[in-house]
Each structure stands twice: as structure tokens, then as C-alpha cells.
């Protein structure tokens, strides 16, 4: 991926497996978010290929439109600076995430407009799914509140719940622990492990908080200047000299951030 003459992500290959939590780490400006935007289709890489081994067969992601990647390939994402539908309610956020399923159930809303029962059933199922995720992230009692009025930590969890409501096979989380206090961060760890174990999907996350990364990741990829400098299990990464030089070499600063 190039911006002008600058290679933001270059010569990078790694894989994230279903049922694993794969963490991408690296210093600021290492190209982590750019990588995410390439996977989720918000940027188009100039060269290279991104393959998703979907249960229904492999899909090449790099030429698909961003919304098609979520709709057809089952890749969902969250954002570094939370993007909720702020003036809609928590529940509505989760219902919107199930848009495509509801659209076909309501025949592009036409059947719904006429009040046909097929749509009512679909909506009930959508609400049930939303309720399931509300329970998971502990926001059931706040379901009818405006999403923008929730405290920061709640908004982060709501965004994850919303992404899960799209029914993904791969969930990409852009710094999910940013701005959380230690207790919220621990809750988040439990939630992510829970998602991995119960849904068996792959999780790909960018994170600066090493306590989160080391505790929950099965696999870690380290980036620096858009290149992969190491890859492996947490224990191996901790001991990798290249990583220590580039990144963990300044543990104090990183721990504080």
C-alpha cells in the first residue's frame, strides 16, 4: 500500500487462522491500521493479494468493495476512534448491523411496508440476536439509550457487539483496549476469549496494550515500517531480539501508553 512515494505496508505476508486470536503489534506508524484498512477494503492495495478462506470457499478480498467484504466475505471490523450511530439507540445500532438479512426478509422493505408477517418474524429474530450480544457485552439494561450518550468503555463494547451482529467469520478489532481502565480492559479480554471459544471465528486485533496482547493472543505479528519483523507465539515474540530492538526495547514508554 503506497501513499505517494511512501510505502505504508510493503512486502508483508502472514495468516490469521479461525479459532485463533492474532495480534498485530508494532510502533506508531508501523502500518497497522493501513493493513486493517486493506483487509476490510477501505483502502485498495496497489499490489499483492489478500485471501480469505471462507467456509464456502476462498475469496480474494483485495478487489472487493468495503461493504461487500462484510456482506459476502464475512469480515467485520471496529474502528480506532469509535464509529457508532450516535443518535440512534443501542438496540438500533445492533439491528442496523443485520441490515442485509432483514432487507432480504422484507423484500427490500416492500413486504415490510405492507405489513407482511414474514418480516415480523425476521425482525423478532434480529432482536433476539441483538439481545444475545447485549447480554454478552452487558448492555441489556441500556438497550434503549442513545448510543452516543454511553460512557466510553460501553461504546467500545457496543461496537464489538455490533460487528458481531453481522455474523462474521473474521473479526478485526482496531485497538479495542484504547482508553479503557484496567477493569474494563480485563472485561474486554474475557469477551474476546469468549467470542473466540464460542463462535470459533478468527480474531485479528491491533493493540498497543501489551497486557492485553500477551494475555489473550494465540499468535502475534510484529510490524515495523510496514514490514513484518517477527511472527510467532507470545512467548517467542517476547524473546525475539529484533522485536526487542524495534519495539519492546522501550518497555516503560509502551507500558505507560
Amino acid at each position: 500500500m503506497r501513499f505517494g512515494g511512501l510505502f505504508a505496508v510493503n512486502d508483508l505476508s502472514f495468516s490469521a487462522r479461525p479459532g485463533d486470536i492474532t495480534a498485530v503489534i508494532g510502533p506508531n506508524g508501523a502500518g497497522k491500521t493501513t493493513l486493517f484498512n486493506c483487509i476490510t477494503g477501505f483502502y485498495k492495495p496497489q499490489v499483492g493479494r489478500i485471501t480469505l478462506n471462507h467456509p464456502s470457499g476462498p475469496i480474494l478480498l483485495e478487489r472487493l468493495d468495503d461493504y461487500v467484504i462484510t456482506a459476502k466475505a464475512g469480515v467485520a471490523r471496529t474502528f480506532q476512534n469509535i464509529r457508532l450511530f450516535a443518535r440512534m439507540s443501542v438496540l438500533e445500532n445492533l439491528i442496523v448491523a443485520q441490515h442485509n438479512a432483514l432487507m432480504s426478509a422484507s423484500a427490500f422493505s416492500l413486504a415490510g411496508l405492507l405489513g407482511l408477517s414474514r418480516y415480523a418474524g425476521a425482525e423478532r429474530r434480529a432482536v433476539e440476536r441483538a439481545r444475545h450480544w447485549l447480554d454478552k457485552v452487558g448492555l441489556t439494561s441500556l438497550a434503549d439509550e442513545e448510543a452516543g450518550s454511553l460512557p466510553y468503555g460501553h461504546q467500545r463494547r457496543l461496537e464489538i457487539a455490533r460487528a458481531m451482529c453481522t455474523g462474521p467469520v473474521l473479526l478485526c478489532l482496531d485497538e479495542p483496549a484504547a482508553g479503557l481502565n484496567p477493569r474494563e480492559s480485563a472485561e474486554l479480554n474475557r469477551l474476546l476469549l469468549d467470542i473466540r471459544d464460542e463462535n470459533g471465528i478468527g480474531l485479528l486485533l491491533i493493540e498497543h496494550d501489551m497486557s492485553v496482547v500477551m494475555e489473550i493472543s494465540d499468535h502475534i505479528v510484529v510490524l515495523d515500517y510496514g514490514r513484518k519483523i517477527a511472527e510467532g507465539a507470545p512467548a517467542a515474540i517476547k524473546a525475539d531480539p529484533a522485536v526487542i530492538r524495534a519495539y519492546l526495547g522501550e518497555p516503560d514508554e509502551e507500558e505507560a501508553g
Binding site: 468495503d66 461493504y67 462484510t70 456482506a71 474502528f79 450511530f85 440512534m88
Partner: peptide
Amino acid sequence: RAWEALREDEIACRSLGIN
């Protein structure tokens, strides 16, 4: 609902598979 979601945040809409 998609209309209102679009008003709130188009990028988030796209990330949810909405055309």
C-alpha cells in the same frame, strides 16, 4: 434504519455490509 445510520456515519455503515 439504514437511512438514519447513513446520516450518522457512512463509514460505519459500509463496515456493516450496507451498500
